[in-house]
């Protein structure tokens, strides 16, 4: 199993397109950091104009923690799309290249193959999250320094003291990893149905985009379905920047995401076990 996992990881990391994701994450993070060095104060003034009518804020508001939060806010919606590049290719890519039957001639079950692909996908997602932590958080801290972090919600203004922030980022990245696991399982599930990687990649992206829109639109009709959409719970990482941290809600979100992951995985294994593999 471990050897097969190594082989899967080798297959993932030898493809140049795997590194598009890492490059894109770094490029966006650096662009936002660069933009913040020149126009960050105007950006903040715009965001804080409501509260600035009543209070004055002094000190290092534009610091590494805030810039990292802005980057994560921008990127964590798009990271699932990048993960779909690998997950969607997992089974469909093999089918397209005609190697799926060959792989299954090895003494492993189809369920094991799905699980190995799933584990490889998770490792890729984790690598991307760690890379995101490096370029978004640590580089922002390097460029802008540390400081108290402001977090503006739609109806609440939160100030977090600088000594009380780093642990929140670690837990937020941990939660993001759980959320990305759901995307890996979704894309592998869709990959099991296709003979070409483009289909499951695009379908995963479409599902994530549509459901993210539904999760964020404030319409009564959508409010009914929101609690059941995994995209609603994928932003649970933000809960760690609330005060007090809504651990119960975050736990519930993690459970929903975990249920989706298990559900997609079981469905993939069930379907893949019965699938007539012709190539």
């Amino acid at each position: 199993m471990i050897k097969l996992l190594y082989i899967e990881l080798y297959k993932i990391f030898r493809r140049p397109r795997t590194y598009i994701s890492f490059g894109m994450v770094a490029a966006i993070a650096l662009l936002i950091q660069f933009a913040m060095t020149s126009g960050g104060k105007d950006f903040l003034a715009f965001g804080m104009q409501g509260i600035s009518e009543q209070f004055t804020f002094e000190g290092k508001i534009l610091n590494g923690y805030l810039v990292a939060y802005i980057i994560l806010q921008s990127l964590l919606i798009h990271i699932p799309l990048l993960i779909a590049l690998v997950g969607g290719d997992a089974l469909a890519g093999e089918a397209n290249m005609g190697t799926l039957r060959l792989v299954l001639t090895r003494p492993i079950s189809r369920a094991q193959l799905v699980l190995i692909k799933f584990c490889a996908g998770i490792i890729y997602a984790l690598a991307l999250i760690i890379w995101l932590a490096v370029v978004a958080l640590f580089m922002s801290l390097l460029f802008f320094g540390a400081g108290d972090m402001i977090n503006m919600k739609s109806d609440t203004f939160i100030l977090l003291l600088k000594d009380d922030i780093m642990w929140r980022y670690f837990l937020a990245f941990g939660f993001a990893a759980v959320a990305m696991t759901t995307i890996v399982s979704l894309s592998i599930f869709l990959s099991a149905f296709a003979e070409n990687a483009i289909g499951p990649i695009m379908t995963t992206m479409a599902i994530v985009v549509v459901l993210t829109i539904l999760s964020n639109l404030e319409l009564p009709l959508f409010n009914l379905v929101k609690p059941y959409l995994f995209t609603t719970h994928m932003i649970g990482w933000k809960g760690f920047f609330d005060d007090p941290v809504p651990y119960k809600a975050i736990g519930r979100s993690a459970l929903v995401l975990f249920s989706y992951t298990v559900g997609f995985l079981v469905l993939t294994i069930t379907y893949f076990n019965k699938k007539d593999i012709k190539s």
Partner: peptide, 14 residues
């Protein structure tokens, strides 16, 4: 004090 939810993308803690 109010900001549009579509901008802040709040995590709804239910």
């Amino acid at each position: 004090y109010k900001l549009p939810k579509s901008v802040t993308m709040d995590y709804d803690n239910a």
